[in-house]
């Protein structure tokens, strides 16, 4: 069966979508990614869509679903490389992709993921320090 490959790089999972996906392929990617996040304990997911010529409501929903599912599985999602014409169309279509972080390219996407995770870990440290203080 046709599949979109998912690469593991350190604590991140990388997906680059290079083909015009039919709907079942989109669903398979969503399932595969969710399983892979859980299996690898990945902290971040980067989806590069720079080769995608359109994002319709179905693919848009998939992207929002992946972001939601990875959030529940304690991972951050960043979508990178959206073409300007795709962004214009998506907003006019009525999909603002609320709750989905985006970056201009893969480099910036990786930096954003690292920052998001650092922030969270920093925040967790502060919290545990605070707990420690309150014991005194």
């Amino acid at each position: 069966m046709e599949r979109i490959p998912i690469l593991k790089m350190g604590k991140f999972l990388l997906v680059t979508i290079q083909v015009d996906m039919h709907d079942r392929l989109v669903m398979t990617l969503q399932d595969d990614l969710t399983h892979k996040i859980s299996a690898t304990g990945a902290r971040g997911v980067l989806i590069d869509i720079s080769a995608l010529e359109i994002v319709d409501s179905f693919i848009g929903r998939m992207i929002a679903n992946i972001a939601g599912m990875s959030r529940v599985l304690d991972a951050k999602t960043v979508v990178t490389g959206m073409q300007p014409a795709v962004a214009i169309t998506l907003v006019e279509l009525g999909l603002a992709l609320d709750g989905v972080q985006t970056a201009l390219n893969v480099d910036r996407g990786i930096m954003l993921l690292e920052k998001l995770i650092e922030l969270e870990e920093g925040g967790a440290d502060l919290e545990s320090e605070h707990d420690h203080d309150s014991e005194h």
Binding site: E53, D56, F58, A85, T89
Partner: peptide
Amino acid sequence: GIVDQTKIITAASELAR
């Protein structure tokens, strides 16, 4: 143009689905 192209392809995708 690229924006009009993207819009009509996206609309067609929605209606075909």
